[in-house]
């Protein structure tokens, strides 16, 4: 006998061991985030400004998946770090063809109608960005904008934002 079975088993086991050792040595142990809590939004009437901003931030980072592209590795989407300046400058620029007249209206327009104006270098006729209305409700979109305003250092007012 030439130990065909034994040789095969040993080679096979070595392959598995090598893969596991590779993973152990070269792949960091990342603990994935636990599943999110079942989703519920307060009625707009009962919301405080803090509720709105928290909803905005959690939508921005979570359900809306904005941060998956914006300011993420890979340069898939324009940076939102300096959104106040960018939005104002965009609306002022001659290339801008959309309907918005001020910066925040432009941000809203980009959320619900991404194709209205496409930032240079991020798409030709169609923006790669999905419409926010695809999976976000009206209040969530408002909350995201309120959060972005707050993040840019603007004062946000509840009744103003819920309009």
């Amino acid at each position: 006998m030439r130990h065909g079975v034994l040789k095969s088993i040993i080679v096979g086991a070595l392959v598995l061991a090598a893969i596991l050792v590779f993973i152990k040595l070269f792949i960091p142990e990342v603990t994935p985030a636990p599943p999110p809590k079942p989703y519920s939004i307060k009625d707009p009437g009962e919301m405080t400004i803090v509720d709105l901003l928290m909803l905005g931030e959690s939508t921005f980072r979570g359900r809306g998946s904005c941060v998956r592209c914006h300011d993420a590795p890979g340069d898939r989407a324009p940076s939102l770090k300096d959104i106040l300046a960018i939005s104002i400058e965009t609306v002022r620029s001659e290339e801008y063809k959309g309907k918005a007249t001020d910066g925040w209206a432009y941000v809203l327009e980009s959320l619900i109608e991404p194709d209205a104006y496409i930032v240079k270098g991020y798409g030709k006729e169609k923006s790669p960005m999905p419409k926010a209305t695809r999976n976000l409700s009206d209040i969530e979109i408002k909350a995201v904008i309120a959060y972005l305003k707050k993040r840019s250092g603007l004062k946000v007012d509840l009744s103003e934002e819920l309009k």
Binding site: S8, A13, L16, I23, V30, P34
Partner: peptide
């Protein structure tokens, strides 16, 4: 069990299943 397991856990489970499959096949 609705969470996403870690890589090493997944790799070990996959390795064990591979071992079982190969054992049956042998």
């Amino acid at each position: 069990d609705a969470f996403t397991p870690t890589i090493s856990y997944a790799a070990k489970v996959v390795s064990i299943i591979t071992l079982i499959f190969l054992a049956i096949i042998i």
